[in-house]
Write a protein that binds this DNA or RNA. Sequence first.
DNA 1: GGATTTGATGAAAGCGCTTGCATCGACTCG
DNA 2: CGAGTCGATGCAAGCGCTTTCATCAAATCC
Lengths: 339, 339
Amino acid sequence: MTSQHAVPTLEDVAKVAGVSPATVSRSLNSPSLVSKETLKRVKSAVETLGYTPHFGARFMSAKRTMTIGAIIPTMENAIFAKGIQAFQERLHDLGYTLLISSNSYDPEIEAEQVRALASRGADGILLIGYWREEKVYKFLQQRNIPFLLAWAFAANNALPAIGFDNRASMYQLCAQVLTMGHRNIAVISGTTEGNDRATNRLKGITECLAVAGINLENVPIIETPYDIDNGANAFEKLMTGPKRPSVVMCGNDVLAVGALQRAQEMGIAVPAEVSITGFDGIELARVVTPRLTTVCVPHSEMGRRAADELVRMVESGEAGRSFELSSEIKVEKSISAII
Amino acid sequence: MTSQHAVPTLEDVAKVAGVSPATVSRSLNSPSLVSKETLKRVKSAVETLGYTPHFGARFMSAKRTMTIGAIIPTMENAIFAKGIQAFQERLHDLGYTLLISSNSYDPEIEAEQVRALASRGADGILLIGYWREEKVYKFLQQRNIPFLLAWAFAANNALPAIGFDNRASMYQLCAQVLTMGHRNIAVISGTTEGNDRATNRLKGITECLAVAGINLENVPIIETPYDIDNGANAFEKLMTGPKRPSVVMCGNDVLAVGALQRAQEMGIAVPAEVSITGFDGIELARVVTPRLTTVCVPHSEMGRRAADELVRMVESGEAGRSFELSSEIKVEKSISAII
DNA sequence: GGATTTGATGAAAGCGCTTGCATCGACTCG
DNA sequence: CGAGTCGATGCAAGCGCTTTCATCAAATCC
């Protein structure tokens, strides 16, 4: 081993540059307080030593860590990917590092991750949706850690959030479905327990149907975790049930794509024999045949603006604001009108 | 504001439990050294105060951080999602926290992220593929930080890696394509610069074609970043060129799906008029119509085993080993034989 | 039963950095 | 030209934790 793994410290840099550690620190953090001359010497010392500030030490003496945490339910399907990617890019531009954790929709793990991020000094945290145990919010407040909720927006909730109204969007989509003449509706919903987005989407459908005077007892609803195969299986169950629906509304695109796929395998024509709708407007929705009728959500915009707002909260110390983004119903070939 | 944001410290816990800070520390980290009695008191003090160890402080005095970093090119398309998800899950089981960064295939940003993770005390780092500037490897070695490469495997490279042989896999797929009678081949490759996976996949094709005696000058190759629309555009260019290929081989499934989509838009029948192949075997490949002929990679297994190996390296201090995983060619409807 | 071991705990020294305060020339001002 | 400013720098006190070493009482041994 040629290299002695002596990680260089501030003091080493100071020695090489012939100044005090304090001056090195200032050169790195507030260059304006240091003379051009010294700055140059320090810079070169840093280079030759390959010095990297020790994050732990910095974290201990300074308050800020320039780190933002994000906790998402899953990375596996693409629902959050685009938004988080945009979130990360914007944060990077703003000089922050993003730490991501995912928890497979498990609230226990989520709570644990909040603590982990807090103890790692996250200056702010991004969470998905509203629902979580009260103690998590308590903890965040007690620790005074700014947080922002994303992928959801509820006008009647004071917590700072950026997203869209899942209920209203789905309501609208359902209204569209009704307008096209469908009365025989089935639903494949994501797991609603502990998931306010899924819950609200389902609510959007049931409310709309109720308003339209459709008896909900006749509307089969299957709940299942977001996954292509689950969507497929649920679809099969619905289509082999007592009464075939004319349209299957799915809680998100992943489920819908599963449904679509199983339809093909079963030789059921879409949309001729049955229509299918999704939600989210992820890539998956536009590459399948027929394209999915879905609700398009501005993922990238959401990610970017979430970054802006969270950083604003962190840097200004002000309370977070909420932003409602608009979603857009995109009617594609996976649905047809009933004549 | 009701809550004074006084984050409780070890000392606070000590005071409440009526013991010394040292004892609290031991209770938390080496319970076996502490009496049952004391342990109980400390535990309850921790609970009532909602104490969370200060990561920075811990990092400063201890060596381990129980943190693993992963640096991936992108979260946006699903190539890495499944593998990283499995990686994270396994790490969680092993008691480690995962920090993820993505860099949009920018080597500068990657280098920066390696430093960021190092200064944050990552006990080990997962990187994608072999190629990166020598200084990055130097840095890692000098800092004595265990690292593992994933999504690639090259028998002739000593760096610890877990993955598959991109060149060999693509060679095999290409051989299959030739077997089916295709001689008029076009390629849509991912950007090869700075990307050894893309480079090797392309090499797999060209080598195979060379062996088959096909003049590479007649093989149009378009290089473009991994993105559905880029795949679509490249496909269109190829199909409107001087001589239509009978098969378009794509560097990954994302490009292939783009190609497939544009084919549909252009009214070109797949596989009747042109065949299309992908690489990776992500979900996208199996939901499109026709299903994509592709090379399936064991993403989840790779993620899990990467976690195991990296943790082993960290905990044992031993050098990393390399693992070649096998990939599997999956022939689906997107390709047809030339008679 | 005195000497030694053992188990449980405390005291205190850092770990590498930031920052308030002190210092000290060099300048400015009246 | 002496007093007050100011810009640049150093000194040193922590930040919250881990860990070595010392301490001390109880248990063990010959």
